[in-house]
Amino acid sequence: MTTKRIIPCLDMTEGKVVKGIQFVSFRDAGDPIALAKKYSDDGADELVFLDITATVENRPILLDVVANTAKKVNIPFSVGGGIRSVSDMRQLLLAGADKVSLNTGAVKNPKLITDCANAFGNQCVVLSLDAKASAPGQWNAWINGGTKDSGLSAVEWAKEAARLGAGEILLTSIDADGTKSGFAIELTRQVSRDVPVPVIASGGAGSMKDFLEIFRDGEADAALAASLFHFGELTIPELKRYLSAQNIAVREIL
């Protein structure tokens, strides 16, 4: 069995790491390359890099920042933001990304998922899904950096994306994001049970217990956090020691 993954996320804009609270009011959290290297050395299981304003600013992702970050990491490195075509994806893989996440581009053109999966294998196509509650126990997928309701049910869209060829779902709860009050357990569990591919839970991490709960109760395969790690409130080695003591299988650091 694979171990549960701990994934620091670098939300980027204009070449810098920022962290929003419920997707707005960004604080500068530092240099992406230095942070990526630190997390890689600290025992992070993967890194996610999201160019969060690429879509709304209608510009391509910052390839040079991706390339320079990739040089410093020897763990899986997933990149997303503003991807519209197979050729965009190939550019990112050539720059050193291992996986590419699709969000708005896939909602607008679901065939993009299939085209990318056919070209590179579904294991390197991640569907990034920003979900927001629409009613109790129901969520919609939001697009354009969490600013627009797509009208699609988040759970149905996750299922459809997996069917089209997405190999993994990066599931962010807009409601939980930046609150540090815990991951969206019910949402994550429902998606995890309904889709046949791994689910990365994102949004709301505030404590080590939140990670335990999202793995144990939310049935997530991986958990992602940003500010908690960026601002040094929690380190990856201490989180892994804690989870291991709680009988959650995590990768040991050599």
Binding site: T3, V197, A222
Partner: peptide, 10 residues
């Protein structure tokens, strides 16, 4: 296994 692809550390 239920989840395919296998993604992660094994």
């Amino acid at each position: 296994e239920k989840k395919v692809p296998q993604i992660g550390w094994n």
